[in-house]
Design a protein around this nucleic acid. Structure first.
Lengths: 169, 169
DNA sequence: AGCGATACATAGCTCAGCTATGTATAATAA
DNA sequence: TTATTATACATAGCTGAGCTATGTATCGCT
């Protein structure tokens, strides 16, 4: 039965149109973000959750590291981190060897907030996604894993702009 | 061989943890958006592409319709539409029966811009996604289709805030 | 001791999101 | 027909995320 689903994909879409698929994925996900925002009434920005998630998955990291990892400029990272700090969702740790460095770590409050948000979001979208089959959840999970993996890959590959040092000034 | 992939999902993850999966999807997609933005150097905002895509898929629609469909407030829709209009990517058509209504449609220039963007994005992410198997593309495509379908479903379901008329004022 | 490089902060801009409110037109009731 | 209410969109004005340019403090090295 599950194999039928697979066969359907392989036969009906033997040639999947991948040309626009990634763009369509981003647009669809963006729309889903809006649906989620209105369904949960969440006023906290996606950037906050993104940053907190990265910090949570990756463990303690420097501000600059966080900026390049999440592909935002260093000043933008500074601002988001300030917001997270005011919420007491992260803590800034002074590096004992380098006074310039602020190492960032998720605070217990932040870990809880993240967990709660994911759960709230899941529940809010249950009316829409509650009836998904195991196979369909499998597609979603595979996609999430894929994206995560490739985003991690991208850390080395592409051009990074933002710090003077990296533009050779 | 492709069946092995499927079997792997079904056996190794017989019980997929769906609790946080949707949140993880949104976060991952958000990160991918950042990767794409930095890879393409695209200065045009995701909101512009989202709005243009919706208009392109749906066909001509009113501003208010666009706002509820994309789950943004009417004033936000007005602003985005103004930006799209300045780019000449959409056209505003006067409704002959109701002078208040501005019907919006994608202009040829906009359709081209959207197509070009999707292609640029696809190419820019080829280093990351070029090696995906047919099965993996299948997962992505299935996920995109799922999201689209459920987002469309959400039009009726959830609470809509934004217009005075809908808050009973 | 001094000087370039580095890590982060600040200033100041644009755009996307919001609520509250204004304005013009339609629809309806007096 | 005219006045009232409802509707469709625009405007005002705020916050936060994104950016570039630049400032400040510290490190590393000569």
């Amino acid at each position: 039965m599950y194999n039928n689903v697979m066969t359907a994909i392989l036969h009906e879409h033997q040639k999947i149109e991948t040309e626009h698929l990634l763009a369509d994925l981003l647009v669809a996900a963006n729309r889903l973000t809006r649906v989620a925002a209105s369904a949960t009434g969440d006023s906290t920005s996606p950037a906050i959750w993104r940053t907190l998630s990265v910090l949570d998955n990756h463990g303690p990291m420097r501000l600059g590291e966080l900026a390049t990892e999440t592909r935002i400029s260093q000043p933008t990272a500074t601002k988001i981190v300030q917001n997270l700090n005011e919420l007491e969702w992260i803590k800034r740790i002074q590096d004992p060897h380098d006074a310039r460095v602020r190492t960032l770590a998720v605070a217990p409050k932040g870990a809880q907030a993240l967990k709660d948000w994911k759960q709230r979001l899941g529940h809010a979208l249950t009316p829409l996604f509650g009836d998904l089959s195991t196979a369909e959840w499998g597609h979603v999970k595979a996609t999430v894993d894929l994206i995560r993996q490739r985003v991690r890959m991208s850390e080395q590959g592409e051009t990074t702009i933002g710090d003077r040092s990296e533009r050779g000034e």
